[in-house]
């Protein structure tokens, strides 16, 4: 089986919003709609202040509340874990939007453009099917499917990888197959301490956040172990 997932390394993210811009470019989302956005979280009081940049968006949950509540079956979850919306079925009731604990869903009532009137590129990519219905991050599912069809590996080959991951200047975002123990995301999760947002709601997000190297498997000890394994192989 395959379970596509995303990993965000909070130690690496610098909050540049390049992923947000790349997502908007790849998916032609209208103003105000950010399927991938980056929060700027600051805690504490001067001089003991900490700051984190947190990429958020659809978490492609294992048990997506948006899918359960959808009255039209427009929201579905694929076998590979990607949660999709059928724009032809959606009635735009926004029940999914209030059911999502990650505020990942949008509904745009009418066509809007950056400077009022549609620029040439906006007019070309405007999709009326996405008006007045729920929209959200798709993990760039079209890129994944096309890449797989072309024999590419999502998360490794850029053409088959979500645009936000490709664009990240700090390699803070990683995409891959959670069910493959040798995948990039599986290795990152093994070597680092991680969490998922709002875990207590038991939605099973497919979006992981790294916050420190693992005491047991990450950093220098892990490097030492890898060297030892290599020596053994040699």
């Amino acid at each position: 089986m395959t379970r596509w997932a995303m990993v965000a390394d909070l130690r690496r993210c610098v909050g540049c919003q390049t992923c947000t811009a790349a997502c908007k470019h790849a998916n032609a989302t209208p103003p105000g709609v950010q399927w991938r956005r980056v929060l700027d979280i600051e805690i504490g009081n001067f001089p003991d202040v900490k700051r984190a940049f947190v990429p958020v968006g659809c978490q492609h949950c294992e048990d997506p509340p948006c899918m359960t509540v959808c009255p039209t079956k427009a929201t579905k979850k694929r076998a590979d874990g990607i949660v999709t919306i059928d724009y032809d079925l959606c009635i735009g009731c926004a029940y999914c939007a209030v059911a999502c604990p990650y505020q990942a869903r949008y509904k745009t009532e009418r066509a809007t453009f950056a400077y009022g009137k549609a620029a040439a590129h906006e007019a070309k990519r405007h999709d009326p099917d996405r008006l007045a219905v729920a929209t959200k991050c798709t993990f760039c599912v079209d890129r994944i499917d096309a890449g797989l069809a072309a024999g590419q590996q999502p998360g490794v080959d850029p053409e088959a990888t979500p645009a936000c991951v490709n664009a990240c200047i700090a390699q803070a975002l990683t995409f891959g197959d959670l069910d493959d123990p040798s995948s990039n995301v599986s290795k990152l999760l093994e070597m680092n301490e991680h969490f998922r947002m709002h875990e207590e709601l038991r939605t099973g997000p497919g979006f992981y956040y790294l916050w420190d190297r693992s005491e047991e498997t990450g950093g220098v000890p892990a490097l030492k172990r890898l060297v030892e394994e290599a020596m053994d192989l040699a």
């Binding site: 509540v69 009255p71 039209t72 079956k73 735009g92």
Partner: peptide, 28 residues
């Protein structure tokens, strides 16, 4: 009133499609 709120009122009958899990379908 809620029909006036939905984005695609002409597809309103789709609301009946998911009584298995959706309370909105069940309400309809």
């Amino acid at each position: 009133a809620v029909w006036l709120e939905i984005g695609r009122p002409l597809r309103a009958l789709n609301v009946f499609f998911n009584p298995r899990t959706s309370w909105m379908s069940r309400e309809a």
